[in-house]
Amino acid sequence: MLDIQTQLFDSQDIRLGPIDHEKDAEIESKWTHDSEFMRLMDTNPARPLSAAMIRKQYEKLEKKVEEDKNLFHFMIRLQADERLIGKAAIQWIEWSNGNGFLRLGIGSAEDRRKGYGTQALQMLLRFAFAELNLFRVSAIVPEYNEGAIALLHRFGFVQEVCRRSALERDGRRWDLYVFGLLRDEWQNGARAEEER
């Protein structure tokens, strides 16, 4: 059972935590040189960023968190050695409607397919529904991000919207999907998981 004592930010292999302004920028800068990662994470044009540019982004991000009050951001680290492996966030929160959008990425290829993304999403959803008390969580995913689509389906997300031909990459148009998960659906899914 999940209860007050169950840790929000720790799972078997990973931990959600704050930015380390000294160490993280070097690692994240490396991720930005991987165009595939950048294209999976974002619809903005991919471009390599220096550690100094990333550091500036961190400053901006923390300012935004403080001022806008509708964004919660986490770094994903390994329990074993604290190494930074990814990023996660609940963003664009509309408090009056109880909505938020999730964002999740594991930075380098060798850290993928190890169950880290699954553990991160599990914690992120619990954070959204049981700590922020949101009513629904949405995710926007391009048609070509098959890994994310499979993960969202596994967590019970419903594909609600198909924005036809909304993106252009590699000389062709792609659909952009919106997925949604309601609090009830999350609770039922979490219960089924426990009973297994």
């Binding site: 009056s96 409607n97 109880g98 909505n99 009513f135 629904r136 949405s138 419903v158 594909q159 609600e160 919207v161 198909c162 924005r163 036809r164 919106v178 949604g180 309601l182």
Partner: peptide, 10 residues
């Protein structure tokens, strides 16, 4: 119509 985000407006 391209879809609907369920219950997102209160």
């Amino acid at each position: 119509p391209e879809g609907r985000t369920r219950n997102d407006t209160l």
